[in-house]
């Protein structure tokens, strides 16, 4: 009786192993993107999951105040961001017909400031631009990234892909060398992630602040000792577009927390 039961347990375990094996094979074949939060430690995950512990929410709340501040407030045209901005961040970077180029969320907010609000644009990485971008992106929290790269944005997407796969800098490394070939392995004390963009603007513990995806990209370029395009440069926006296309299906986590 006991032997028979042990046999059936063994059979069940064997079946389970086959099922697990099949799942892994499918995952590899489809190359499902994995969010950076999967590579983070339990403490960082806990910080991101709890809205009061997540310091990024301080920026989001400041963004909410900016959204409805002043005589030409964002809310004057767009109303309640919870409905009007829902899903917007998941579609950015996107092609802007008027500017005839790909723009990211920061570009879009600044364009609105200049053209509609008749105000000076916020400088890149300024506290106000980060706050407003984080606030707008948070309205898409949990929604899958779904950028369009088949239309007029296609050429920019291809340039972004080329940037991602080209070796550069004194270290002669392409983004792919770490984030595709070695994702999940260790680099000193860090686990190399896939370099997914779905948490940004994110609170980085290293920065002690919220920062944009472009800031993170520039930090990576600094790390491989490559030339750093200035914040807002088209190369970086096109790279953001490629990254978003690569991350399609991953939920927006803004404001994410990263080391």
């Amino acid at each position: 009786m006991i032997a028979a039961r042990a046999g059936s347990v063994r059979r069940a375990m064997a079946c389970a192993c086959i099922v697990v094996g099949a799942t892994v094979a499918v995952a590899t074949a489809r190359a499902e993107p994995r969010s950076g939060i999967d590579y983070a430690g339990a403490d960082v995950r806990a910080m991101q999951d709890d809205d009061l512990m997540n310091p990024g929410m301080l920026w989001v709340e400041r963004g909410a105040a900016l959204w409805s501040a002043g005589s030409t407030a964002c809310a004057g045209c767009h109303g309640d961001a919870a409905t009007s901005m829902k899903g917007v961040a998941a579609r950015y970077p996107a092609w802007d017909a008027k500017a005839a180029r790909v723009v990211d969320l920061e570009d879009r907010i600044d364009a609105c400031r200049v053209e509609r609000q008749r105000a000076a644009p916020f400088p890149r990485e300024s506290e106000d631009l980060l706050a407003l971008t984080a606030f707008v992106a948070t309205q898409s929290r949990g929604m899958p990234i779904a950028v369009d790269v088949d239309g007029p944005a296609h050429a920019a997407f291809e340039r972004g892909r080329a940037f991602y796969t080209e070796r550069r800098g004194q270290m002669n490394l392409a983004c792919t060398n770490c984030h595709v070939d070695n994702a999940g392995k260790r680099l000193y004390a860090e686990t190399i992630s896939e370099g997914q963009p779905n948490a940004y603007p994110a609170y980085r513990l290293e920065w002690q602040s919220v920062g944009s995806l472009q800031r993170r990209l520039r930090a990576c370029l600094y790390g491989v000792r490559a030339a750093m395009p200035p914040a807002g440069a088209p190369e970086l926006t096109e790279l953001e577009l490629y990254l978003a296309a690569r991350a399609r299906g991953l939920p927006v986590e803004t404001p994410g927390v990263r080391r």
Partner: peptide, 9 residues
Amino acid sequence: VRISIRHPM
């Protein structure tokens, strides 16, 4: 009671 304060420290 939980409080999170914006400050550069």
